[in-house]
């Protein structure tokens, strides 16, 4: 990962900055160029609450390159209270005790070190 490519996404990664469509009010994360509900192209930045519910999860036992030291770790789909769905690691948990439907909250954590710098991003932890 390049430094420029990393920092470009930082507002999303550090504080879940999404976008609200000015046309229909749909919330998107990540922000989109075109609203897939109404086709609108005007948005305003909207920081998401980070509060949500775990819809599905799995435990990664054979991680991709760059994540080797972290396995086993949990990955889950979280439905945020704004209705947006995001995919992220579930941290600060015993993966064996995770359950669908669990309440979770977003935190900023270290994701990996790939380009010689530390890459941070959102994860979720049991609330």
């Amino acid at each position: 990962m390049s430094a420029s490519g990393y920092l470009r996404e930082a507002p999303r990664r550090y504080r879940l900055e999404g976008a609200a469509c000015k046309g229909c009010g749909a919330i998107h994360f990540p922000p989109r160029a075109v609203c897939d509900r109404c086709g609108g192209r005007d948005f305003e930045a909207r920081e998401l609450s980070g509060e949500g519910e775990l819809l599905a999860y799995t435990i990664i036992r054979h991680p991709p390159k760059g994540f080797e030291g972290q396995a086993p770790y949990a990955i889950g789909i979280v439905q945020l209270k704004e209705g947006v769905r995001v995919l992220a690691q579930i941290t600060d948990c015993d993966p064996a005790e995770l359950r669908e439907g669990a309440k979770v909250e977003a935190v900023m954590r270290r994701i990996r070190e790939d380009g010689g710098f530390i890459e941070y991003g959102y994860k979720f932890r049991p609330a």
Partner: peptide
């Protein structure tokens, strides 16, 4: 890459979510 792979999701892992669901 920005919002799935970045999180450490493997391709198997994503399909595992399908299986669970």
């Amino acid at each position: 890459q920005e919002y799935s792979a970045y999180m450490g999701a493997s391709f198997v892992g994503l399909n595992a979510l399908v299986a669970r669901a």
